[in-house]
Every structure is written in structure tokens, then in C-alpha cells.
Simulated assay, not measured.
Amino acid sequence: MPSSSRDLSRPEDGFDVVLAGIAARGLAASARRAGLRALVLDLFADEDTRALASHVVQLRRHDGFALDPDDLLEQLGRHAGADVPLVLGTGFEDAPELVAQLAARFHVVGSGADTLAKLKDPVLFARQLAALGIPHPRLFPGAAPEGRRALEKRVGGSGGGHVRPARRARGAGWYLQEFVEGRSVSVLFLGDGEAARLIAFSEQWCDASDDAPFRYGGCAGPVAVEDARARQVADALSKLTGAVGLKGLASADLILHDEGWHLIEVNPRPGATLDIFDAPPLPPLLRLHLDACAGRLPELPLLVPGAGVEARAAGLFYAPAAMVLRDALPDWAADRPAPGTRIAAGEPVCTVRAAGRDIAEARAVLARRMDHLSRALSTASRAAAE
């Protein structure tokens, strides 16, 4: 567990915000940009997270890359004040009960347990969308109808690693959703519990592995979406925000196609697009999150490609084989483990970032950096195997 020279027992060493999640480096960077002193609790305590935060607590892993609720509650009780804003990142999608526990003891700033349950329970979510007239994929309670493609997903899952083509869901904790063909995009937005404000659209892609064909690969933005369609999405998300009481930063995954669009999923927390949007011309996104949770939506125009707007891309680099990191990673890599860290095959090593004049250039730079990292780390993979 990383240590800090700051003495947490002294009042002058207080924090402005507490950030918790599986990986909270993006939130820590936004806090630093906003001038906020952050206490971070996550599973990795990466080197750049430690440099960005005032103090970092490495949490115990539970069942792979899940948060251990007991350890999280214990560490928060030990290090975090009850009145300091607590912002939750990834790792709480399937745990509304844990969010309720946290809200009872700490000052959670964001969507509550009830909102989370309504958005992440697939049946409740589909019913809510139907009631609001928002286009969405059908759920199949049994087998998919003949001739219909379907995806099996884990309830509350994130990251895409749990998604697979299937004819029938495997049982409790899983569901079957209609597959919708089209362009996969995500929209970052803010909610104040009553209305939503769109911030920017991004494109996303998969980095398929043998057992995870829809594993999350990365994102790039901003991308342009037809004005009429963007207005439809904004109206739909405002209706949904008011219906479920969504607050703060969130993202919605969409499929755009010739006939229109479908809303696939809503993640009611700050996510991966912090890496491409938490930079000028936008203000610090964590500050916008705190403001929206207090009922203040910003008067910001939708961020679109154009003059003066740099395109950015960020992708996850997964270990192709078991490895031991021998050297520090390049500056364009984020979520940097310390040299000597052992990483199993298929686990994320770091986030790779790139920028360009447009999306094509940003993704081309990202691809070159991914290739460079793959070649550079091949030695580490061989060393781990010997």
C-alpha cells in the first residue's frame, strides 16, 4: 500500500474531495485540474494517481477486479471525513446496496442507490425507456427469436468483457438483449435530477479477446452527430434524468443507424471519457459534476469538432501475456504501474493517450503508440515466462 508524507491526523491536511472506484486516476486528474485536494481509494494506486492526489489508499481486490465492500468501508472510515464530498467512479454498477451504505455514512455526491438500481436493472431500465418513448433494444426472457441476433450480458456489468453473442442467457444475474447494428457512440452528459445537459459525443470500439469479443478498447472524440439526432438524444436523456433522479456526470451508450438510434445503456458516474474530454476548452469535469449535483447545470454548448478543438483518443492496453514491468512507461501512458509490478495475461496494463487535428489523426497516433508499447513490453513478457 502506498504511503504519503502527509499526516492525516492534522486538520490542515484535510481533503476537498474523496474519490473511490476500481481505477480513479481520471478523477484524480480532474480534481488536480480543478485545484481540489483529493483522497483517492482504488485498486491500483498507480504512480500517476499518487502524483495527482494528496493521498492514495490501495484497496483490496475482491473476486478479480471488484471492490471489496468491507475494505472500502473500513478505509473510508479510517481516512475520509463524513462531510467531505465522496464521488464514486467505476465499480458500483452492480452494488446499489453498497451505495446506500456509503450514503448513510458519508456525503456521497452523485446518483443514489435508487437511481442506480433503476438504470442498471435491465428489466426496470427497459420498462422506464418504454414508458418515456425512448428507443431501446428488446429484452428476450427466454431464447432469442429465430433470425434475431442477441447478446448475453451480466446485470450491472461494465467494460464489455462480460458481453457475448448468445441464443439464451445462462441464468440468474444475466440477461439477453437484442443486438442492434449500427455506429457505436457514447455521449457524456450532466444531470441535476430534473434535466440533462449534453457535453460531447465520442466514438468507442472493442478490443476483442478469445473469450471477450466486446471487451472495451477505447474512445475518441469529440465526434459530430447530426443536429436533429443530438436534440432527440438530449430530450430523451432529460426525460430519463427527471424520471430516475440522475445527478452529476454520466454517459449514455448509443447505437446510431439509418432508421434512427437506440439507447443501449446509461452509466450514472464519471467514466473513461474523462481522458478525452477533461481538457480545454471544457472546464474541469469534476467541478461540473459537483455543481450539477448541487442543482447547477452549466451553460455550455455541445463540444463538436472544428477549429481550435483538438481531437483526443484513449485506449486500454491489455497484457498479451504474463509480464513483469521492468521500466517506467512513456509519458503518453496513464494509469502507470510501478516498475516491478506483475501483470497477468489479459489484464489491463495502462491507458494510452493520443491527440490530433481530427479523429483519424488521433486514432492513428494512438495505434502507433499501442504498437510501440506492444513491442517494448514483449521483453517483459518473455522475462516473466522464463
Score class of each variant (00 low, 15 high):
residue 269 R to C: 05
residue 300 L to E: 02
residue 320 P to F: 04
residue 318 Y to F: 15
residue 326 R to I: 05
residue 287 R to M: 04
residue 306 G to K: 05
residue 257 H to I: 13
residue 279 A to R: 06
residue 265 E to L: 03
residue 375 R to G: 13
residue 288 L to C: 14
residue 271 G to T: 15
residue 356 G to V: 09
residue 322 A to D: 15
residue 299 E to F: 12
residue 297 L to M: 14
residue 301 P to V: 14
residue 298 P to K: 07
residue 272 A to R: 00
residue 349 V to E: 06
residue 294 A to V: 11
residue 358 D to N: 14
residue 339 P to Q: 10
residue 281 P to N: 12
residue 255 I to S: 05
residue 287 R to T: 15
residue 343 I to E: 07
residue 336 R to I: 13
residue 321 A to C: 04
residue 297 L to E: 11
residue 369 R to P: 03
residue 327 D to N: 12
residue 307 A to H: 07
residue 340 G to S: 10
residue 257 H to E: 11
residue 365 V to A: 05
residue 304 V to W: 00
residue 341 T to N: 07
residue 354 A to Q: 03
residue 291 D to K: 11
residue 286 L to F: 10
residue 354 A to G: 09
residue 341 T to P: 01
residue 273 T to H: 05
residue 362 A to H: 07
residue 305 P to I: 08
residue 370 M to N: 10
residue 252 A to Y: 04
residue 306 G to W: 03
residue 275 D to N: 06
residue 371 D to M: 06
residue 325 L to R: 06
residue 307 A to T: 14
residue 367 A to Q: 08
residue 348 P to D: 14
residue 288 L to M: 13
residue 318 Y to W: 07
residue 361 E to D: 07
residue 274 L to T: 05
residue 357 R to E: 15
residue 288 L to H: 07
residue 320 P to D: 05
residue 338 A to K: 13
residue 259 E to V: 10
residue 294 A to F: 09
residue 272 A to S: 11
residue 295 G to W: 04
residue 369 R to T: 08
residue 349 V to S: 07
residue 367 A to M: 05
residue 317 F to L: 11
residue 375 R to Y: 06
residue 284 P to F: 10
residue 294 A to T: 09
residue 312 R to C: 03
residue 254 L to Y: 02
residue 370 M to W: 04
residue 274 L to I: 02
residue 269 R to T: 02
residue 299 E to D: 15
residue 271 G to E: 03
residue 308 G to F: 02
residue 250 A to G: 08
residue 333 A to G: 11
residue 305 P to Y: 03
residue 334 A to H: 06
residue 304 V to M: 13
residue 292 A to E: 00
residue 362 A to W: 03
residue 354 A to N: 06
residue 317 F to H: 08
residue 283 P to E: 04
residue 249 L to K: 07
residue 303 L to N: 08
residue 269 R to F: 02
residue 268 P to H: 10
residue 335 D to P: 07
residue 371 D to Q: 13
residue 338 A to N: 08
residue 331 D to R: 14
residue 311 A to H: 04
residue 351 T to S: 13
residue 321 A to D: 14
residue 299 E to A: 15
residue 287 R to A: 15
residue 248 G to V: 11
residue 322 A to F: 02
residue 312 R to Q: 04
residue 366 L to R: 06
residue 314 A to K: 03
residue 277 F to I: 08
residue 341 T to V: 10
residue 357 R to L: 09
residue 364 A to P: 01
residue 322 A to N: 14
residue 260 G to C: 06
residue 276 I to T: 09
residue 361 E to S: 09
residue 286 L to D: 09
residue 365 V to G: 02
residue 265 E to I: 10
residue 284 P to S: 12
residue 329 L to F: 06
residue 254 L to T: 08
residue 315 G to L: 02
residue 256 L to G: 06
residue 282 L to I: 12
residue 367 A to I: 09
residue 363 R to I: 07
residue 350 C to Y: 01
residue 276 I to W: 01
residue 314 A to Y: 00
residue 352 V to L: 13
